[in-house]
Simulated assay, not measured.
Amino acid sequence: MALSQLSLALTKDQAYALVDAVMERDDLAVTASAHEDAETGEWIFEATCLERPELDSFSELARLTLGGDVEFRIEEIDPSVNWVAKSLEGLHPVRAGGFYVYGSHETAPVPGGLTGIRIDAAQAFGTGHHETTTGCLEAIDRALKRRRFTNVIDIGTGTGVLAIAVAKRLKRRVLATDIDPVAVSTTLGNARDNGVERQIVAIEAEGLDHHLIASGAPYDLVIANILAGPLAALAPGMARITQRGATIILSGILNQQAPRVTSAYVGQSMILRSKITRGNWSTLVLEKR
């Protein structure tokens, strides 16, 4: 399969804004990232695309996001290299909500008082570095301090980082679902690496459409870090699979999208208990009446 990489030198804020804009769409790139060039100090936006990228679409999105015209550089890349992993492998550990997310290349011990989660870069979303993931980890930490949950589901699990975080703290079974079979296999591998393979049940499912999701209901903790549109559409289903008093943690939501998602859940007899804002992204914590 032919892959292409599209790149552009920007300021740090511009690079991350463009990453967010690209990742909001599912038709432009396999992945997008931003990093600082060690030699020049410039911040580089990069997007990895199947075949040739749709340059007109990228240029229009950049114009809307950055307020001006830009000139991308495009190059063919070696299809034998896992560029999703390559773009992430140098990231530093992340501390969020009492959790410490790190890669296997880290040799330092997990700091005292933190719950370590080892997640290597892979072809699935969730190494702990994105604001949506850190927001969810903080929300999970707060929720677990208030209550001991007994039936947990993580929808759109990606690498399984959030499911693993809950399993490590609660020592209980967590159902992890994702539409992508690569994410399911990645989650199972990460569960083994973190010693919670007996607590994590990972399945391929679209939304809430799987018999194991239905048979496992009602849930008292639901985590879903996906996108605003699907989250709003899932609101009625979320109401069906949750018990009274359940906590629902939602992310993958741009700040300007938070009112629309909140409204969808309030309409299903849920109350917004708190909102965590990280950069351009919001994490919502709701409770079922």
Score class of each variant (00 low, 15 high):
E71W: 05
L66W: 06
P53I: 11
D56M: 09
T31N: 11
A29W: 08
D27S: 06
A34Y: 00
L55H: 09
E54S: 10
T48A: 10
F58A: 05
T65N: 03
E24Y: 09
G67M: 07
L64W: 08
S33H: 09
G68I: 06
E42P: 02
A32D: 08
E42N: 07
D56H: 10
P53V: 11
E60R: 14
L61Q: 13
E36A: 01
L28W: 05
T48I: 15
E39K: 11
E51H: 14
G41V: 04
V30L: 15
D56E: 15
E71L: 06
D27Q: 08
A32W: 10
E54Y: 07
L66G: 04
C49K: 01
E51L: 13
L55E: 14
F45P: 00
R52Q: 15
L66V: 04
I44F: 02
E42W: 00
E71D: 12
R25V: 08
V30D: 14
C49F: 01
E39R: 08
L50I: 12
H35E: 12
L61R: 11
E51S: 13
E42Q: 09
E42V: 02
R25Y: 10
E36W: 01
T48H: 12
H35D: 09
R63I: 02
A62K: 03
E71H: 07
M23G: 04
V30H: 14
L66F: 05
D56N: 12
D37M: 02
S59P: 01
W43I: 00
V30N: 14
A29P: 05
